[in-house]
Write a protein that binds this DNA or RNA. Structure first.
Lengths: 209, 209
DNA sequence: ATGCAAGTGGCAGTCAACCGCCTCTTTGTT
DNA sequence: AACAAAGAGGCGGTTGACTGCCACTTGCAT
């Protein structure tokens, strides 16, 4: 998950990684996004040196913790959505699930954001399924034809950013999801400007590289 | 700008504040969002202790630096827009100006973001004019009637967040502005969910208060 | 069961943000 | 010109993220 040679971890090490991520989510949620990494390590029952061995910095840790949450919440939501016979409802139900998780884990999200991580590409593993859902909605004529897959993580990024302008639990983001869905409707007339490429790997990104 | 009793600063102190902000913008732009505050102080020709006296932390500094840029770029754009006889073009021209500044100063923006500041309320002083422009467009039937003033900073926040998903200079955000404008069109049918209040003062916001 | 690679975690150290203290300089007023 | 208040900034200190070193433990292949 953080070691360079994508090698399998020993079972005890894998268990530690799991516990660290779960502790990170819990501690961020309870103590806020400025929670110290030592506290997380302690909560996980490992030495802080072990935490740092697996996760080189706070950005990677917070993002990985978020990915754990995503795996638990979004993956099942996608499973369900793929079975839905209303393709627009299928797509929005996944967005709903993602926003629900984001609101619930907003402190973890905030920690990742403050550490400089770009969240939108945490959807990574589900990009393909998400694209499929969008294409289905397109083919059914429920969303405009000129949308491309790269639009999805960006729309998610826009929705996420709303959480800092409101009480995250308020579901006030639904208003803007509605606005954006109106913009995504096939009835929307204005032809869209050309899409530009996503930032390749928008991870810890220190300077000048 | 940071002192509690909103008192006037001595002229030399005001000059220093000015220089610090200008240096912050320059140094962030040239050395990236992780630039050290000592470097900024040095560039401004003041001691680091002076910088910290005026700006209690990096978030406040970066946000104030951004506000300096806003004052220089957005204020004139609003002046012009208020004279425009096409109210939709007037509104979008201001958004254009804001995004142009944001793209140009994306490192300062990133510094503020990483330090935990919420950028959308940096529009503060221009909220009234922006609201006026929006209301004009509404009365001319160019944008839907159910939009409220609080929607504007949030739409700006959404657009800003796009910058981290692309090369900030690419103007790729125009695609999503277009999408959102389609959603803002009076032709858009879906009634919007109720708006929720903006976060009161979304500034340094340490935990648990 | 055993040997070794893989993993752990304590310790001490670096580096940057940020603060209190305290002396010296500058401004604006009379 | 003279003075009180405001401001500057050096120094040393604290805190939290993160690292190298290294002796100790543990999973697992044989």
């Amino acid at each position: 998950m953080a070691t360079d040679p994508e090698r399998l971890l020993r079972t005890d090490a894998a268990r530690n990684v799991e516990r660290i991520l779960r502790s990170a989510r819990k501690v961020f949620t309870e103590s806020g996004p400025d929670a110290q990494l030592d506290e997380i390590a302690q909560h996980a029952g490992v030495g802080s040196r072990t935490l740092y061995r697996r996760f080189p910095n706070k950005a990677v840790l917070a993002k990985a913790a978020l990915e754990q949450g995503i795996a638990e919440y979004i993956a099942p939501a996608i499973e369900q959505a793929l079975l839905d016979d209303d393709p627009l409802r299928a797509l929005t139900s996944v967005i709903d699930a993602a926003m629900g998780l984001a609101a619930q884990e907003h402190n973890t999200l905030a920690a990742a954001r403050r550490a400089g991580a770009v969240i939108s590409d945490a959807i990574g593993p589900y990009y393909t399924s998400l694209t499929l859902l969008a294409r289905r909605a397109q083919q059914a004529g429920r969303i405009r034809a000129d949308l491309v897959p790269e639009d999805l993580p960006r729309i998610m990024a826009m929705l996420f950013s709303l959480l800092w302008t409101m009480d995250p639990a308020s579901e006030g983001w639904r208003r803007y999801l509605s606005l954006i869905l109106d913009g995504m409707s096939p009835a929307a007339a204005t032809p869209l400007p050309e899409p530009v490429p996503l930032r390749p790997s928008s991870q810890p990104r220190n300077w000048p590289i």
